[in-house]
Amino acid sequence: MDETGKELVLALYDYQEKSPREVTMKKGDILTLLNSTNKDSWKVEVKITVNGKTYERQGFVPAAYVKKL
């Protein structure tokens, strides 16, 4: 869990989004878990840094590609 009590997951593999509802992640990324009720895909939040500014983006990733921490 992070400092706000949200559950975290670790990306086990790289994943490139295939639709606007998904998010891209790299192996080793730590993501905030938002919903894990679907056995196939979990909703997560990723933090992306562009030019020194951090943005948050929500979307789905394959459940088999992440592990709860």
Rank of each mutant, 00 (worst) to 15 (best):
E22R: 03
V61N: 01
N35M: 07
V46N: 04
Y55T: 11
N51T: 04
A63E: 03
A63S: 14
V61T: 00
T37Y: 09
Y13P: 01
Y55P: 00
G28W: 05
V50T: 08
K39E: 10
G5D: 11
G28N: 04
L31M: 12
Q16T: 13
V9H: 03
N35S: 12
L8G: 02
T4H: 14
D2R: 13
Q58C: 08
A11M: 03
R57M: 08
N38C: 10
K43E: 14
S19K: 05
A64V: 10
T49M: 12
K39W: 07
T49Q: 10
L10V: 15
G59D: 01
A11I: 05
M1L: 12
Y13T: 08
P62R: 04
P20Y: 07
T4L: 12
K27F: 05
N51Q: 09
K68M: 11
V44I: 05
V9G: 09
D40A: 08
T37E: 14
K6I: 12
Y15C: 04
V23D: 01
Y13V: 12
P20F: 08
T49Y: 10
A11P: 01
K68H: 08
Y15L: 02
F60R: 01
K47F: 08
K53Q: 13
S19D: 11
K18N: 09
K53H: 13
R57Q: 07
E45M: 15
D14M: 04
R57I: 10
V66I: 07
E3K: 14
L10K: 07
W42K: 00
K6C: 15
L33Q: 01
W42Q: 00
G52M: 04
K43F: 15
K68F: 09
N35F: 06
E22C: 08
A64P: 06
Y15Q: 01
A64M: 11
R57S: 05
L12Y: 02
G28D: 04
L34I: 15
A63K: 06
L69P: 01
P62S: 04
E56A: 15
Q16V: 14
V50I: 14
Y13R: 15
D29T: 06
V9E: 01
E45C: 15
Y15M: 01
D40F: 13
L69F: 08
R57K: 12
S36Y: 07
Y13W: 10
Y55E: 11
E56Q: 14
P62C: 09
T32W: 11
M25C: 04
R57N: 04
A63D: 03
L12R: 03
R21I: 13
L33P: 00
F60A: 01
M1T: 13
M1A: 13
T24H: 03
V23N: 00
E3T: 13
E22A: 06
K43L: 15
S19Q: 07
K27S: 05
T24E: 03
L34E: 02
K68T: 07
M1Y: 13
P20M: 08
L10F: 08
S41G: 05
N51D: 13
L31N: 00
Y13G: 05
A64E: 13
N51P: 02
E17G: 15
R57F: 08
V23C: 06
R21L: 14
P20C: 11
G5Q: 13
V61Y: 00
E3P: 13
N51C: 12
D2N: 14
T32N: 06
L8E: 06
K18R: 12
L8M: 09
L31D: 00
K26N: 09
S19T: 11
Y13N: 07
S41F: 15
E3D: 13
K18S: 10
R21W: 15
I30S: 02
D29H: 04
L34F: 02
K47M: 10
M1V: 12
V61R: 00
